[in-house]
Amino acid sequence: MESQSDTKKSLNLRSIGGKMVKPLKILLINTKSKAGFILLVSLIIFGILGQFFTPYNPNRYEFTGGLGPSYAHLLGTTIYGQDVFSQLFYGAAPTLMVGFAVGIIGTSISIIVGISAGFASERVNAFITGLINIFLIIPGVLLIMLFGSFFLGIHQSLGYLPTILILIITGWAFGARTFRSITLSIAKRDFILSSVLIGESRLSIIFRQIIRAIFPVIISNFFFTAMYGTMGLTFVEYLGVGNLLQINWGTMLYWAINNEAYLTGMWWWILPPSFMISILMFSFILLNFGMDEIGNPSLRRFDSKKSKKNKKINDDLNVNTEN
């Protein structure tokens, strides 16, 4: 009996897309997304702790410049005499926050625009598709540089809020396009037609059925957009158009590179922020890939034998127990 219910559970997992799994649980099904999830959670904890427990004040220039790693300064000091580890620790939270903010808000906009385009009349669909395409070709980083230079010109600098805003404006369109095409194909399926026939409203169909059907894609898109957000922030700061007094991994890189840390052998200044950014990107990518595999069965390794084979397994392992 035990083993039977286990098998059923495994079959459920296989036909995810099929059965809805609780949002957090969905992240732990796939090995890739599990690894990514663990990495990301560690980084978040790192970021939260960093707001309270830095060994030294990350803003103060109180030590000898250019010290190598030691027990007192785990990652040495900058040329200006700041503690690198404290900066790394403290700078994690803003870096993560920008990524998440862009991910959450950007994905929400994608969902609203994409799904309403996919489910609307032909004319509205055409209009929104045009809009999406326009936003799709706006080069985000260039736009930021433009704004940033403008602000620099008037002796201001881009704070976090304007940066996030610009990244959202330039980052939502990709997801919207994905959602639009998926919604278009789902809206034609029999189970949606059936809901139309029993008298469900459009809104009800969108919230009760379409969003649930594309849930893995939403999650996957969230991580993709969050990655875009983090990367965007890094670029902005690295190029020096942001507020350079703020401490995050992007500004750390800017100062390290501006002071030619790679030439003077101060690896402890340049490597740690690069490494942390890579780890963060890596966790986003793992989560994104993992979600893709769940949402798109043909990518899954267990079922990599094309959907026909899956159907065969389901045929033969037909789990049904008539009284």
Binding site: K19, M20, F191, S194, S195, R208, R212
Partner: peptide
């Protein structure tokens, strides 16, 4: 196989 919503 297509007329019932797999999520419900």
């Amino acid at each position: 196989y297509a007329s019932l919503d797999p999520n419900h």
